[in-house]
Amino acid sequence: MNQQDLITSGQMAFLFFSFMTGSSIVNVPGPVIGFAHNGAWISLIISNLIGLLLLTCLLMLHKKHAGLTLVECSRKAVGSFVTVLLTVPFIFYLFLMVTWIVIGVGGFMNSSMMRETPSYIFHFFILVTAAWTVRAGMEVMARMFVLYTIIVLFFVFIVLALLFTNYNPDFLLPILPDGIKPVMLGSYFTFGFPFAEIVVFSMLLPYVNKESSSKLPKYMVTALIFNGFVLIMTTLCTLMTYGPLATKLRYPLFAISRLIDFADFMQRIESVVGISLIAGSYMKATIALFALNLMMSRLFKTQDERVFIYPITLICFCLSIVMFDSQAEFDEKVSLVWPLLNLTLAVIPFLIIASVSFIKKEG
C-alpha cells in the first residue's frame, strides 16, 4: 500500500463507526423490537458486549501482525492452501454484504419515497459511486466519511430531539413480558447485524499509520460503544413513540420522523432520514467493497490492487437484480439468514486464523 493511503487512528475510528452505524441505524430497531419487544435495548447491550470481545481479538491480532491484512496473517499462521479455504467463504460473504446493502437501499426507496422508480436504478448509482470512491483510495474515503458521518448523526439526533413530546416512557414496561428467550433471540440477530461485521476491519487496520497506531484501541472501542449507544437510543425512542405497534414497523426511524410537527412550520422531514439512510448505506457499501477488493488482490497477489474493483462492482450489480424475487423474501433472509452467514462465513474463519496466530510462535 502507498504511504499516501495511510490514515490516522481517529479517521479509522470514524470509518469503523460509519460502517457499524451505516444502514443499521434505520434497519436494526424494527427487527430487534419484533424479536425482543420491550427488551430490545437489553439485546443490544448484550450483543454490544460480545462485539467488544470480538473487537479486542481483532486489535490483538493487529498488534501482533502490524501492517498485515487478514490474508497475510493467515498465510503466516496456516499456510497458503488453508488460507484459500478460509478466505474464499469470506470473499463470498463480502459479495453478499455489498449486494444486500444496495438491495436494502433499493427496497427502502421503492417502499417509502420513490415507488415508481425501478430498484436497479438505485443499485446502479450506489455501486458506481462506491466503486469510484474505492478507486480514489483509503485517504479520500476517510476524509469524506468523517464529514458524512457527522451530518448523518446530526440529522438523527435532531429527529429524535424534535419528537420529545411524543415519548411515553410507560410503553417501555414491562421489560421482559415473555421472559429472557426473546431477548436472547434479539441478541443473536443484533450480534449478526451489525456487531459480527467487525471482522471486516481485519483487512483495513493496516492502513493506520505508525505514528498514531498507539491510540487505535482507545478510538475503536469508543466508536463501538458509541455505536451501541446510538442504536439503543433509537430503539428506545421508537418504543416510547409507538409502544406495542413498534413491532409492525419496517423502518422505525423513518416512521417516527413522519410524526414531527413542530410549531406548524417544521413538517415532513422524513426525507432527511431517507438521505441519512442512503448516505449511511453508501459508506458501508464502499468500505465493504474496499475490503473485498483488497482481500482478492492480496489473495491473488496482484501488482495493481485496483484491478478487481470494476469486475466486482459489476458482479454485485447483477446479483442485486436476480438474487431475490420480492422485498419480503429479502427481509426474511436479512432477519434469519444473515446473522448465521456472518458467523459461519466470516467470524469463524477469522477466529481460526486469530487463534492459530496467537498460539503459533514467531519463527
Rank of each mutant, 00 (worst) to 15 (best):
S212F: 03
V230R: 07
F308M: 13
E305T: 13
I225P: 11
V221Q: 11
G51P: 08
E362H: 14
F201K: 06
M138D: 06
T234V: 14
D331K: 13
L289W: 06
L52A: 12
T247S: 15
V337W: 12
K181N: 12
S326E: 02
A279N: 09
T241Y: 00
C57R: 07
E72Y: 04
H65W: 10
F262G: 01
A354R: 02
V28N: 02
Q303V: 12
G274H: 02
S212I: 06
F358Q: 01
A40G: 01
C73M: 07
T238A: 04
L319H: 04
L52K: 11
I121V: 15
S202K: 01
F262I: 02
P244D: 08
L59I: 00
I150T: 13
Q3G: 13
Y251G: 03
M20Y: 10
N48Q: 14
T234C: 13
F157G: 01
S281P: 05
F14E: 01
G10Y: 08
S355W: 00
R115A: 15
I121H: 11
A246P: 07
I46T: 01
M113L: 15
F191P: 02
A291G: 08
S271C: 10
L259G: 12
Y310I: 15
T344Y: 15
F154I: 14
L176A: 12
T8Y: 05
C316S: 09
I158D: 02
N168M: 09
K218N: 03
A13C: 00
A255N: 09
E211N: 12
